[in-house]
Design a binder for these strands. Structure first.
Lengths: 137, 137
DNA sequence: CTTACACTCTATAGTAACTATAGAGTCAAG
DNA sequence: CTTGACTCTATAGTTACTATAGAGTGTAAG
């Protein structure tokens, strides 16, 4: 039942002090108790909530999504269809971004093949490719 | 040798009017000539330069990188080793991000498998997994 | 001539999720 | 009573734009 000051919570959670205060401002963490000297004092529940947020963020869920999950997880009796939906949607976004980056990777590889040696820039195939319109030879 | 107003250049290049003005402020495009009524007037060279920038951005090079490439491509006699290096480095960053996202994808998939049906949130395996510390069962 | 409209101009604020700083206060140890 | 480590609030900066307000320009129709 010991209460933590923000620096201790930061160390335990792996979030920075500023980030914790930021989450409070954004309504992801509720305002904690304060000491006589106006320092924030966090209980175990707050620590768990912060770690929940941290896990969500490590999965790259957005803060609005995290906020939504926090709300859902505390609405007694609500069903978890929405939770599933959010995760599914997020998976799709990740898949799409992977495809984008793979296409980008191919393009960069092709570009790189245009110039293998150290030439003067006027002859550099990379610069040339970037200058030319896509369709041109 | 016709000069283009910013709206026409925007259409031709696929950039928005605001983006073109933004590139000017950031020093990627030089200040163009102005009409009597103070409208920007762009020549063919400016159009080519903008398209160069557009291509670089479609490869997700950062604006500082693009600026650097523009400088290099116009320094007469400089060699293109730096160009190659930049592209190689960018390729590595893309590869790293792909690996990150693939790991993320696996984690999200695992998470999703924790809850397949419509349960009440208290029993939802997804929420449970997010609440629990990584190591715990 | 004037009025409508489509365009342009500058300057400013907003986006996401933080990070960094300034300037002031708190608290325990020496 | 001073030093040092911590905390507080408020504010500005990051990236690459996008959006808006309020004013001016240019042309065509009535």
């Amino acid at each position: 039942m010991t209460l933590l000051k923000i620096g201790e919570l930061a160390k335990r959670s792996g979030c920075s002090v500023q980030t914790i205060r930021y989450y409070e401002r954004e309504g992801l963490l509720s305002s904690p108790a304060r000491s006589d000297g106006n320092f924030r004092l966090y209980d175990h529940q707050a620590e768990e909530r912060l770690i929940f947020i941290k896990r969500c963020r490590s999965l790259e869920l957005s803060l609005p999504e995290v906020r939504h999950l926090l709300t859902l997880s505390q609405a007694p009796g609500s069903t978890c269809g929405e939770v599933n939906e959010m995760v599914d949607q997020h998976i799709q976004q990740v898949e799409e971004r992977i495809r984008e980056l793979q296409s980008l990777h191919r393009q960069l590889h092709d570009l790189r093949n245009n110039c293998s040696e150290n030439r003067i820039v006027e002859d550099c195939g990379i610069i040339r490719s970037l200058v030319q319109q896509k369709g041109s030879k």
